[in-house]
């Protein structure tokens, strides 16, 4: 059992009897400074866990919104080094909120796994979600990360059957990220009843918290998912909130951090009502 900010935060929320709100945003979108202000706004608006997106040129599991956000960030000069620096900057004023870096393996591989883990620890990173590293590839990053004291959070999907689930859970820590449907990020939300069944199925195999994402956009959905899940992950809706205040040439027509904060406050209310709704 690890003891990271994620573990402590999830235990605290469990004691409070409410699910976590996990918020994803793209590091460096639309630029470094604005993105850092978005990151700082997240916990204030009620986010419990932050997923910091690492932009990649070829995000094969992401929908159009996150693809576009990644390209905006890269165009603005974001690199993995800068994404780590953003976490370190954030830590200067917040040493409590867990940070999970999420993205694809190649930029980490090129950075160098050992160097990356050392810098990630230094920057206050608590967990990693690397989409294209299934358990079959655990020697690459998962095992070194766990040894370094960083949670490696695995995705479980509707195609992960009971036979395969133990393999997926084997080296997972922090929480399990259940992808609510087959498909890319930002698609329509799956049937919440089915999601509840899937969460119970996973909980039959692990004591880890189970957070659910892919397709959650509104406070209402967050409340419905939060009734059964230990956490609700919202990504595309946040990335869209940024995109919506950008003009045709990328100029800001309003404050992206404020737009994100408004959305996240609503979502936070949703998760806070989840268990009340479930108890009714």
């Amino acid at each position: 059992m690890t003891n990271t900010r994620i573990d402590r935060r999830m235990a605290k929320l469990k004691a409070e009897g409410r699910p976590a709100l996990v918020t994803y945003f793209m590091g460096g979108d639309p630029d470094y400074d604005t993105s850092l202000s978005i990151m700082k706004a997240l916990p204030k608006a009620g986010s419990d866990v932050i997923e910091l997106g690492m932009p990649f040129s070829d995000p094969m599991a992401d929908g159009p919104a996150i693809q576009a956000a990644g390209l905006r960030a890269l165009k603005a000069g974001q690199t993995l080094k800068k994404t780590l620096a953003m976490a370190a900057d954030f830590r200067k004023s917040d040493d409590e909120t867990p940070i999970v870096m999420m993205g694809y393996y190649n930029p980490i591989y090129i950075y160098g796994v050992e160097r990356f883990l050392a810098d990630a620890i230094q920057s206050g990173i608590d967990g990693l979600i690397v989409v294209d590293l299934p358990p079959e590839m655990d020697d690459e990053l998962c095992i070194p990360a766990v040894r370094a004291g960083i949670n490696f959070i695995r995705l479980a999907t509707p195609t992960t059957d009971d036979k395969r689930l133990p393999k997926v859970l084997e080296n997972t820590s922090g929480f399990v990220y259940y992808v609510s449907m087959t498909g890319i990020t930002g698609s329509a939300l799956a049937d919440t009843g089915k999601v509840g069944d899937a969460v119970r199925r996973i909980k039959g195999h692990t004591h880890l918290p189970v957070c659910v994402g892919f397709g959650v956009k509104t406070a209402e959905q967050a409340r419905a998912i939060g009734a059964s899940a230990d956490g609700v992950v919202v990504g595309t809706a946040i990335v869209n909130a940024v995109a919506n205040v950008l003009g045709p040439n990328g100029e800001m027509t309003a404050d992206p951090a404020e737009a994100v904060a408004t959305l996240v406050s609503g979502l936070a209310q949703g998760v806070r009502q989840a268990r009340l709704a479930a108890a009714e």
Binding site: M60, A61, D132, P135, M137, L155, T159, R164, V179, G183
Partner: peptide, 20 residues
């Protein structure tokens, strides 16, 4: 058996695709 040619190859895919 892991699909590797030395250090090359492998199965670097999202979990959804892994069972497939």
């Amino acid at each position: 058996e892991q699909g590797m040619f030395g250090i090359f190859g492998g199965r670097f895919v999202a979990e959804t695709l892994m069972p497939l």
